[in-house]
């Protein structure tokens, strides 16, 4: 605590506010987790008997399981694509002289500052006008575009901190540009690359609107959940929600831990 700017009184006010925020943020999630173990079809308290019924139902429901595996595949491929493309682009933005640098960087990170639904609608209208049928491979490319800015920004932050001399040394010793990137730069960036992979995976795994617009029949997990929520409640949604929450948050937390601690460490030097 910094005594110069935070008095004792302020400190207690701020910590009370922080605790209140934590309660508000976690209350609904805890309620959802509790309900996922609650027997009885209706989502009302008090708590009845604990049960695993909804989880068993969930595993037996092939529509959920199939959509989970579709999402898993989409997210894995999209995160790998985005991390590779992002790494290459981040390298160029960080180390090369690019004409219209700001404009091109703006174009690449632009999807981040545009409502998702506009990007989704744009893609849908585009494939309709070109005459392509909605399909999973479009979802894959669309989601790669959606998470690409995250990859570029994260990796550019890392590559910016690596002095150019490191790579120059290996090149003057006879290595090719490509070789020095793969053998020198990539290993230095390994933690950031790993974190980017996890982060883009999480975002792509939870992405709804692009998938909703670009596929008709092979649905992803967020679409399956959405359909269930808007067409009629199924009690196993609590179980799905709990599972997805734990899955995504674990991956997201690991990624953010690596990025934040790495950042703190680099700033120290």
């Amino acid at each position: 605590m910094n005594n110069l700017i935070v008095s004792k009184f302020m400190f207690s006010l701020l910590s009370a506010f922080f605790c209140l925020a934590l309660i508000v943020i976690y209350l609904p999630i805890i309620v959802m987790i509790v309900f996922s173990f609650n027997s009885g079809k209706y989502q009302t308290l008090p708590f009845r008997e604990p049960t695993f019924e909804w989880y068993v139902n969930l595993i037996a429901d092939s529509s959920f399981i199939n959509s989970f595996f579709t999402s898993l595949m989409m997210a894995s491929l999209a995160s790998v694509f985005a991390t590779i493309l992002g790494f290459l682009a981040a390298y160029a933005f960080s180390k090369a002289k690019i004409p219209a640098h700001a404009l091109l960087f703006g174009i690449v990170v632009c999807p981040l500052v545009i409502p998702m639904i506009l990007i989704g609608i744009g893609m849908r209208l585009q494939i309709v006008s070109v005459g392509i049928q909605p399909a999973l491979w479009l979802v894959l490319l669309g989601q790669t575009l959606y998470v690409l800015p995250l990859a570029v920004i994260n990796l550019k932050n890392r590559i910016d901190k690596i002095p150019k001399s490191m790579e120059e040394a290996s090149i003057s010793l006879g290595s090719s540009r490509l070789k020095s990137i793969v053998l020198i730069l990539a290993p230095i960036c390994a933690p950031s690359l790993f974190a980017t992979l996890l982060l883009t995976f999480t975002f792509s795994f939870d992405e709804f609107v692009i998938a909703y617009f670009l596929t008709n029949f092979e649905i992803t997990l967020p679409i399956r959940i959405w359909t269930s929520l808007v067409t009629g409640f199924e009690p196993k949604i609590n179980a799905v929600g709990t599972a997805v929450f734990i899955f995504s948050v674990t991956l997201g937390l690991i990624a953010q831990f690596i990025l934040l601690f790495k950042q703190a460490e680099l700033n120290k030097h």
């Binding site: 925020a21 967020p222 991956l251």
Partner: peptide, 11 residues
């Protein structure tokens, strides 16, 4: 504060 940020909007 940020943990729930990574789960889907829908959930």
């Amino acid at each position: 504060i940020l943990a729930p940020f990574w789960t889907s909007f829908t959930i």
